[in-house]
Each structure stands twice: as C-alpha cells, then as structure tokens.
Design a protein around this nucleic acid. Structure first.
Lengths: 209, 209
DNA sequence: GACAATTGAATGAACGTTCATTCAATTACC
DNA sequence: GGTAATTGAATGAACGTTCATTCAATTGTC
C-alpha cells in the first residue's frame, strides 16, 4: 500500500505540508524559513522545491488543505442529529494537528496573510461563504429554529455565529496561559451555547426553560 | 509653537510611528523593512534607531499607541447617551488613520504577533479585558439592559459582542472588494444591531418592536 | 554683532546575518 | 545502467543594525 509512484509523491507532499503546518502554526508564515520546514519534515531544503514551486505555493496549498478539512467538517455537520450538535462540530474539531492555540494562531495568520495576498484571501472567502451558507441551510431546515421569529434570516444567524466563533479564536490565539486544550474548548463552547440560547430561545417564552 | 526640544522629539517619534503604522497595515510586521518605514516617514534608516531601540520596539510601541486610542474610545463610550450609542462608538471609530481594511489588517496582524510574542500578547489581553470590563459596566448600569433576563451576565454579553466584533473585523481584512469604508462600516453595524436586538429584546415581548 | 567652538539630529554606506532558491553531486531503485 | 529521488553546499538578494561622518543650529567669547 501507498507504494505506487503517485502515492509516494503524495506522501512526500503531505509530509512536507504537515511539517509546514507545524512550523507556520508555531512561528507564523514569514518567520518560518524553508530550512525550518525541511528539518521539521526530516528532508533536505532542495527536496521541497521538487514538490512545491516556492514558499508561497507551500502557504497557499496549506491554506487549501485547511479549507478542505473544513469542507469535510461541513459534511460531518450535515449528518449531525441536531443543529446544536452540528455547530459543536465546528467549534470542537481541530482541523489540523497540534495544540488548539497553535491552530488558532495558524488561522489568524491565514487571515493576516489574506489581508495582503489576494490569492489567499479568495481561498479564505470561498470557504467562509461555503461554510456559512452550509450552516444557514442547516438552520433553515432544522425544526428547532424554524419557528423562532427573532427577525433574523438563517444566513444572518449563521454569520453571527461564525463571527463570534472567529472572534473567540482570535482571543484564544493571544492566551498564553497554561490552559489545557479541553479547557479552551469548554470555554468556547460555553460562549457558543450562550449565543445559541439567545438566538434560538422563543421570543414568546420565558428565557429560562 | 511646537518648538521646544521635547516637542520636536515627540514629533519625530510619532512621525515614525505613523509611518510604521502605514507600512505595517499595508504589508504586515514581518514584510515591512526598516527601510520601508524610513522612506515612508521621509527620514533615514539610522534615525529610527535614535528613537527606537529596534524593530520590535517600534511594533510594541505601535501596539501601545493603538491601545491608548482604544482606551480613549472607552472614555468616549462612557459618555454616550445610550448603550447602543456607546457600542456604535466601538464599531465606528477607526483608532488609527487610513482605510478601514488596512486597519483591520493591522489588528489581525497584532493578534497574530501576539500569538508568538508574549509581550504583545500581554498588551492585547490587557486592553481586551479593560474594554470588555468597561462595556460590561456600561451594560450593568444601562436602564435598557437591566431588566432583560436572558440569563447572561453583563460581562458575558460584552464578551459576545466583542467576539462578534473581532470576527467581523477578521472578515473585513480578507475582503478585497472595492467597498467604501462607509459600506464596510454599515455592514458591521447591521450585524451589531442584529446581535444587539437578539441580546436585549425582552424575552417576553414580541421580537419586533 | 562677529566669529569660533560645540552640539546632536540626521545621514546612508557598510557589516554580518538570514533567507529563498538553485544545482551539481550522490543515492536509491528497477 | 539508467532513471528518479534526494542531498546540502553555494548563491545572491534582502534584512536589521551600526557608526563614522555631515552640517545647521546653538552657545560662548570678545
């Protein structure tokens, strides 16, 4: 298995991408050198250039990898039993490997890179739209949410939820305290559940169920 | 006026800081060279080192400048007639000069930098706490919010609002479309007002007032 | 007031280092 | 033996930083 030429090629590629992920998350795009990636991956510098045109190609392909895993998440979310479960999937999943804070840092970096690099920006926006649209669909179809007349469209609700999620992620990135990943997650889910309750509590029912 | 020696000193400092702001917002911290800052400021490279110990000092001092202006915003917000007005101040103000998207990019960069640099992270966290705490106080004291029993503390409400605000800012940073600053602002205020309505609408009243 | 002495803000070429990138040489594989 | 994969020393551009030097403004002296 994994031994055809094209497989070996893919393995090397993803091996380098994984290493890049670790380095970029740890130190940011522009403080990571090709030597860093090479030694993290356990290969030579030159080899990276056999599989990627240049450093930017590594960055954008890593962005694409990240985005692919988010699309996957959306698929899993679609199959979740309840809307809340679906949302928890988005907050719970770490789409890449490593600590939660490193991942947050990576995503914040991705947006920062997107602020200058139109190519990365397009990638980020595309996923944002797909995911928000996907969750909006989920909301529109969920029985819990259908009859809540809070005046917001499903799309607007999804936008708010993801905006809050991104904001919490940003907050997480600058939290250097010795908090376990589980605690970070619980904190974020706590906020999500609050937003959830506020968004989906029947306006004509008592807020405390 | 503005001719005492100390004034001239302050002017040079802020002149360089302003130039740094422009460069950092446009290209990010680590893609901005000292030569870039120097030529943007219209001074020589060497002169920067007369006023700042090194590049990192420029970054952190710029962060502090940014934070100072946010503190100012908090003061203005405190004097706002209504709670909603106070919140609008936070979303409306551009604390630094230049386009809104550049400013968003700068803030995202600041968080990204904070993810690696504990010094910057402490700065960011400190302001986050001050501002969230300040708005929580505003909420606690506002007559509009006092009797809304949605089960959230003022602090939790403030956290949610700012999380959403940060998330929208992140989104803004990757939006390269030709949208005017006014439109960007209106879009964000639209979301803020929605969140606002959901958070502060009486649970026992119809959602549409 | 005129001139010399002194100051320190400002300059920009130069230094050592780091980085992305290349490529001739080597190794592994069939 | 030939092809593909891999290596890492070499390259040159770019970077942060330094510092000898310049010179307009200020001060001291007569």
């Amino acid at each position: 298995m994994a031994s055809t030429p094209s497989d070996a090629l893919l393995d090397r590629r993803s091996q380098i991408l994984r290493a890049g992920m670790v380095c970029f998350a740890k130190n940011g795009f522009h403080q990571t050198s090709m030597h860093d990636i090479a030694s993290e991956a356990g290969v030579s510098v030159g080899l990276i250039y056999r599989y990627f045109e240049n450093k930017e190609a590594v960055i954008t392909e890593m962005g694409q990898e990240h985005m692919r895993s988010i699309h996957e998440m959306l698929e899993r979310a679609r199959r979740a039993p309840t809307l809340m479960d679906a949302l928890e999937i988005f907050f719970t999943a770490h789409c890449c490997h490593g600590e939660r804070r490193l991942e947050s840092a990576f995503v914040v970096d991705l947006f920062a890179e997107g602020a200058r690099n139109p190519h990365v920006a397009a990638l980020v926006r595309e996923v944002l739209e797909t995911v928000v649209g996907g969750v909006a669909d989920l909301i529109a179809q969920s029985p819990e949410a259908r009859q809540i007349p809070n005046g917001l469209t499903p799309h607007e609700i999804a936008e708010l939820i993801f905006a809050a999620g991104r904001g919490l992620l940003m907050r997480d990135a600058v939290d250097h305290s010795r908090v376990t990943d589980a605690e970070r997650l619980e904190r974020q889910l706590h906020h999500l559940r609050q937003l959830w309750r506020v968004l989906f509590t029947h306006a004509n029912e008592p807020a405390f169920a």
